[in-house]
């Protein structure tokens, strides 16, 4: 049943304008990060790792969470329009599967975004004249960013489901991202879902700052995933839908 739900969610994204956002948004930090790197070669001397700091600077701090929130809002917008809530709630599938299907599709989009960021990083590295291939560490940080985004995806799904506006969850996620800057600086990043992705991607740092904290990181990801997905399922069970 879950598979059918995923198929349905995938169909909603086919030929969707959301893919334009998916392609365009990561291009800006890539271009600007590269030019910033080339303009500061006298200070940035660690090659690929220095380029990484410039690519992830701002992008993970401010804009990755709103991008995920935009994906989530887009996915829920269909249900908020044209009385689709009635159709969704009367479909012969469990609420858990409905939510999980949306989660899996969103996670797929986030993972693809990470791949796209990796491709852009490699192209920009070559453009900047960096030797060799992409360092394995950077690929690992991209993967870890995917894991870190799980909490944001779950929270965005919940917010976009409860808040019928398309845009409000996006600005809330920007606030969440900015708040995570302060929390990470205070060492409390593992308690805030928006900060996990930043920590996972080792944003704006050439040295791995997560050594010895993997268990905490994975526990936080699992905790936020279970918390927000359970909240979404319980909300749907208890509250009557507002169909319009």
């Amino acid at each position: 049943m879950l598979k059918s739900c995923i198929k349905a969610e995938n169909a909603k994204l086919k030929s969707s304008v959301i893919w334009i956002l998916f392609f365009i948004v990561p291009i800006f930090p890539a271009i600007m990060g590269t030019f910033n790197y080339l303009g500061n070669l006298d200070v940035l001397k660690s090659g690929w790792y220095s380029l990484w700091t410039q690519h992830t600077l701002f992008y993970t701090d401010f804009f990755y969470a709103p991008l995920i929130a935009a994906y989530a809002s887009y996915l829920w917008r269909m249900e908020h329009l044209n009385h689709n809530w009635n159709l969704l709630m009367t479909a012969p599938v469990s609420l858990k599967n409905l939510i999980l299907a949306k989660f899996i599709v969103l996670f797929k989009m986030t993972a693809l975004t990470q791949v796209w960021i990796g491709v852009l990083f490699f192209i920009c590295g070559k453009f900047a004249g960096l030797p060799g291939m992409l360092p394995g560490k950077c690929i690992f940080w991209l993967f870890r960013g995917c894991i870190g985004s799980i909490g944001i995806i779950a929270l965005s799904l919940l917010l976009s489901m409860v808040i019928r506006s398309f845009s409000v969850p996006i600005i809330l996620s920007l606030f969440g991202s900015i708040a995570s800057l302060g929390l990470v600086a205070k060492g409390a990043g593992y308690f805030w879902p928006y900060a996990l992705m930043m920590l996972g991607m080792n944003a704006n740092s050439a040295d791995d700052g997560m050594m010895g904290h993997y268990a905490t990181f994975l526990f936080s990801v699992a905790f936020f995933f279970l918390l927000f997905i359970s909240a979404a399922v319980i909300y749907l069970k208890k509250k009557d839908v507002r169909s319009a």
């Binding site: 304008v17 959301i18 334009i20 956002l21 365009i24 948004v25 800006f28 930090p29 701002f58 992008y59 401010f62 804009f63 709103p66 991008l67 935009a70 809002s73 887009y74 917008r77 398309f166 845009s167 996006i170 920007l174």
Partner: peptide, 13 residues
């Protein structure tokens, strides 16, 4: 509204 929001997001960035 994804178009308008995309422009806003890219604009901020």
């Amino acid at each position: 509204q994804i178009v308008a929001l995309a422009v806003g997001l890219i604009g901020s960035f």
